[in-house]
Structure formats: structure tokens, C-alpha cells
Design a protein around this nucleic acid. Structure first.
Lengths: 344, 344
DNA sequence: CTGAAAGCGCTTACAG
DNA sequence: CTGAAAGCGCTTACAG
């Protein structure tokens, strides 16, 4: 007839026993009342942690409910973002996880402080977050990290702080392969229309480009390297700048398909035929590359797989499993289509 | 000293009183136990509704937390879906609402029964749902409706049951304007590549098309009307069928831009020049119409606005406000680009 | 600031 | 299938 200890979930009474206080006192601490002495509060908090106490609400929230992961984009206005999202959603269906979607928009200056946002994630019972590119700054990622909220960043613009896990693609190898392809076709004047100068992925692509040039003994021409944004406008303006040069390039490697699409549009306006007058290679390998006219040679990133992998890593972290690595790079591969040809 | 009735949240005991049963019986109904007579269950359910009872969990969930709306797509693989989603997300940011994203995929045969899914929505404390096109069938919509879960359907494939609110665009007027445009250019043999025959929006576009023909005294040719799916494949196959006819059409009105894109691709393969040999108009007016080569004449739907409106209506219903109408149609407008021209 | 006592709201076990 | 009774786990009101 003796009471069996340690069976079932710990109750508030058990926490009280552990802390050597009464149940009402524990109740006060849990509910954030002020009228508890600092020492008592500390003992209660220790007991709460030691026993792993969960309030009925927390229990209910945790228990039957489908776990929820938050996915944060700075914008959904790109085929890139949509493909990553599709990968996340696909794996979420497999794992029976719910997805809270958050689009921050340009104004990274949110109303919420990093601390409050992290607290909210905790309050709402999220198991973790997937952050795509630059949706959150270092301060925010740090706040998540300090509270042990599992976070995975896809294609971080800057190296994420602490031990935050990131997923990307082999950008350097991809940049090298696209450039090598153009070199093999016989091009020597190859321009690079890049993404933001500070973005890791764009830097890697640039250095892959330079590595390919150097390996072929082709000098790097600074005039041919134009950083910008991953948007068609950059392709439009970039092409105009390149056409204004004394020595025009015969080929362009664009750091994203969206940039390449801008080049394509501007080339059409300027009556420059692609690939006859100018070869063009992109990066990302979204359906837009395939559907473009002419179809775009592009370095394909496994975007869906990156989304899936990010979710896998969030869930693993949430389960307390160790990850093999803080940084995962999935392979890119060059897909040759119609937009590249030997120079005239 | 008399007990004040009706003050504070209704308790389980109050529900029991209302239903004329004991508290344990109400508890059983709430917790989905089987051992309750059907008649008793019905009375308890009525009392639950009448009193507006919320379990402590529901109460806590509802209280400090940011309200959450669930958005359900059958697929995210279309520019259409992405634009609607963008509209929803934009308004969600304005209203400070969270968005749970759900992509059902082709298998509308989910593991969850309609009842259980509706229960889950309630348990998780969603304020309501936005359902895009055919993501849920009638049985599911009905289950939501019976539990008074606010639902708004965007572009329902079938007329939604009960008083479920739906948002769409002026499909009939759009179909008429596209066809009238082709007629004005001088076309008389105009084909219609439609969406699913049972889909309301496709029917409306078809009847707009027929109305325009009739108004111009042009006979409707059944061979020119081919229903299908809102995907490029339908455009590819549809064009092949039309080319096999003795009297080939000189213009095609496609019920979506994605269908038109398929026509465009197949026309290129067959060396049919658009608009020189064949005029082509689409529907949706997504960025894909603009970026196509040649740029696609298309009936623009205000997709973002439809997403925004859907969220507004969900929130209004959740607040218990009355809506002016169960069906809202936003205006479409024809955007003439490069893919339509007079017949040769 | 603390806790014994009372109380609240719901659930469980079981007699009928 | 139903409900009186007992019980559970937490919170509240208040004496000290």
C-alpha cells in the first residue's frame, strides 16, 4: 500500500515536496507572482527543473498536439523561396509536423525585440525554426541560440553566430562548374553578375568563378565583376553596364536565375541574341530556368532537398540528437540548356 | 448573497445545468467518450454551443496568444497559389495574425476524418481557415461549418455547402472580355482550353466565352471546347488536338496562364508562331504571363487581393461580425500583351 | 513572505 | 447509459 514514487507526471505537490515548500508557494512561482522571497523562488525553480514539472496546459499543449515548426522567409517572391518551401512542406507532411509561415518583408526592423520574439516562440510551443537567407539578423539568431531553440538557417547571408546550424549548397563548386563550362565553349571574356557582396553564397560563387578562370590561365577582369541583388533588375542594369565596356564580355555567369532572367529580358530589348551573340548561365535551377526562352543553362541547387534537410535538422535538434556537422552543403550540378554556345 | 448568474466564463457545471444532465456526463461528451446516449449527447452539444463553453485549455490557448489562421492549399506549385499566399501573408502581417500553412497534396484522402480534423482545428485554437480551390471536399467543409469554425474558400471548385463564404473573381466577365478581344481582332474560330468541367470558375469562364461569341453572332463549335486541368500539360495536349481538326482555330483562349504556357511551349515545338499564326490569351495574370515570350495577353485576377479579402472575412466571422454577402467576386481585367493579333 | 484551509473545476470509478 | 460521491491538481483568500 505504500505510495509509488516517481510514477506518472510530476505534480505541483511533488515539486513542493522536492523544494521543501508548500504547494501554494510553488503555484505562486509558476504564475509569476511577486510575493515570493528570492531564495525560496530559487529553490522552487531548481525543483521545477529537477522534477521536469509541466503545467497541465504545457502538458496538453505538448501531448496530443502536432509539433509545429516556424519557417521564416524575408520574401516569398522568388521561385527559389517557393521551392525551398515546397521541400519543407513535403517533409512536414511525412513527419506530421505543422508549419507556421512567417514572411518578414523588407522591414527587418520588426516591432518585436529579439528577446521577445524568442520568448514568443517558446510560449507558443514551437519545436524550432527554419530561417531562410537573411530573414533574421545576428542578434535574433543569438537570442534563439541562448534559449536553446533549435534553429537552422538556409543559405545564410552572413555566417550565423554560435553553433547555429546552416544548410546550403556547394556554391563554390557550382560557380566553378558554370564558369568552366563557358571556358570550354571557348569564352575568355566572361562576366559575373553577383548577389550581395557580403552574402556568403555569392562570395563562394564568385570565388568558384575566379578559380575556374585562373585554372584556365584567364586573367580576372574587375570590370566584369558586378555585385548586386538576386533580382531581375540587377540583370537588366548589369547587362547595360557590361555593354558599355570597351571590351564587351562574350558570356555572363549570373549568380541567380532571377538575375539571368533580367539579362534575358534586357538582351531581347537590345536585340542581342542569346546564345548567338552572348552566352548566359544562371544559378538555382528553378523551373524558371527551364521555362525561359531560350531555356537557361543553370547550376541547379537541390532547393527542395535543402528545405527537407533543414526540417530534418530542426527536428533532430529538438529531440536532443547530436548533428554530425554545423554546416551541411548539398551538391549542385550544372544543367546545360540552350543559353550557352561557343562565342562567334 | 445570491449567486450571480452569467458572470465570468461558463463552467462545465453551468453547461450541465443548461442541458439538464450531470457534470460527469458533460465531461464525457467533451472528451469524446462513447458511453453517452445519442439524445443526451445532442442536448449536451446544444448546451455547449448555447453557453459558449471553452475548456480551460482552450481558454488559455486563446488568451494572450497571437491568433492563428490556417491556410490550406492542394498544391503550392503554381504562380496562382503563390500570389494568393502572398496576399494572405501581407494582410496577416497587418492584422498581426499568424499563418499555419497546410499543403494537402494530391491525396485528398487524408488520414484524418473530417470530424477529427475539425476537432483538431478547435483544439489548436485556430480562429479560422482559408481553403484554396479544392483542398477540402464538401464533407470536410460541412464539418467545419457545423462546428462554427470560420471558413473562407477561394475559387471553390464546387459551390461550398451551407453558408460557407467564398471569394473569387468575375470569371464570367473575364472570359467574355478575353473572347471579345479576340473577336475584335477579327478572329472567328476561337477555341477554349478549360479547367475541370465541374469547376465553377472554369464553367463561368466558358460561359463568358460563349456569351461573347453569341453576342457577335459566331456559332459555338463544340470541337473547340476542351476541358482539362489547370496545368501546362493540358495546353500541350489541347493544342495538338486542335491542330488535328479540319478547321483549325486561329485563336485560343486558355482558362489559366499555366495552360497557355503549355500551348506556348508546344507551339514553339511545332514551329507555330504566336501571335502570327495563332493568337493566345490566358487567364490569371500572374508574373508568368508577363515574363512569357511572347508576353501573354491575359485576364488578370486580383490574386493578392483575393488572399487579403479571404483573411479579412475569416477574421470578421471570428469576431462574430456579419458579412454583407456569402460570395464575393473581385473584378478581373484584361491585359493585352504580345500574344494576340489579327488573324492572317 | 508563507502555508493551512477552503474552494474551484474537472475527471474517475462505480453502483444502479 | 447516468450521476452521486470521491478525488485530483491547482489556486485563492487570509491568518500569522
Amino acid at each position: 500500500m505504500s505510495t509509488v514514487q516517481g510514477v506518472g507526471r510530476p505534480t505541483l505537490a511533488a515539486v513542493a515536496r522536492e523544494a521543501g515548500v508548500s504547494a501554494p508557494t510553488v503555484s505562486k512561482v509558476i504564475n509569476g507572482r511577486e510575493d515570493v522571497a528570492a531564495g525560496t523562488r530559487a529553490r522552487v525553480l531548481a525543483a521545477l527543473e529537477q522534477t521536469g514539472y509541466q503545467s497541465p496546459l504545457q502538458r496538453k499543449t505538448a501531448e496530443g498536439r502536432t509539433p509545429t515548426v516556424e519557417v521564416v522567409f524575408d520574401s516569398l517572391n522568388s521561385a527559389y523561396a517557393v521551392e525551398v518551401l515546397n521541400g519543407v512542406m513535403e517533409h512536414a507532411a511525412v513527419e506530421d509536423v505543422q508549419v507556421m509561415l512567417n514572411v518578414t518583408g523588407r522591414q527587418s526592423a520588426s516591432k518585436l525585440t529579439p528577446e521577445r520574439r524568442a520568448q514568443r516562440i517558446l510560449d507558443e510551443g514551437r519545436v524550432g525554426l527554419i530561417v531562410v537567407t537573411s530573414a533574421f539578423g545576428e542578434a535574433q539568431l543569438d537570442a534563439f541560440y541562448r534559449r536553446h531553440i533549435p534553429v537552422v538557417v538556409i543559405d545564410p547571408l552572413n555566417p550565423p553566430p554560435g553553433d547555429v546550424v546552416s544548410v546550403g549548397a556547394s556554391n563554390w563548386a557550382g560557380g566553378k562548374s558554370a564558369t568552366a563550362h563557358l571556358l570550354e565553349l571557348g569564352h575568355r571574356r566572361i562576366a559575373y553578375l553577383g548577389g550581395p557582396a557580403e552574402a556568403e553564397c555569392s562570395q563562394a560563387r564568385l570565388h568558384g568563378y575566379m578559380a575556374a578562370l585562373m585554372a584556365s590561365g584567364v586573367a580576372v577582369n574587375d570590370e566584369y565583376i558586378i555585385p548586386g541583388v538576386f533580382r531581375p533588375e540587377h540583370g537588366v542594369r548589369g547587362l547595360r553596364k557590361l555593354l558599355a565596356l570597351d571590351e564587351r564580355p562574350t558570356a555572363i555567369f549570373a549568380a541567380s536565375d532571377s538575375i539571368a532572367l533580367g539579362v534575358l529580358a534586357e538582351a531581347r530589348r537590345q536585340r542581342i541574341r542569346i546564345p548567338d551573340d552572348l552566352s548566359l548561365a544562371g544559378f538555382d535551377g528553378t523551373f524558371q530556368a527551364e521555362e525561359a526562352v531560350p531555356a537557361l543553362t543553370s547550376v541547379a541547387q537541390p532547393l527542395q532537398e535543402m528545405g527537407r534537410a533543414a526540417l530534418r535538422f530542426v527536428l533532430r535538434q529538438a529531440r536532443g540528437e547530436l548533428l554530425d556537422s554545423r554546416r551541411v552543403e548539398l551538391a549542385t550540378h550544372l544543367v546545360v540548356r540552350e543559353s550557352t554556345a561557343p562565342p562567334r
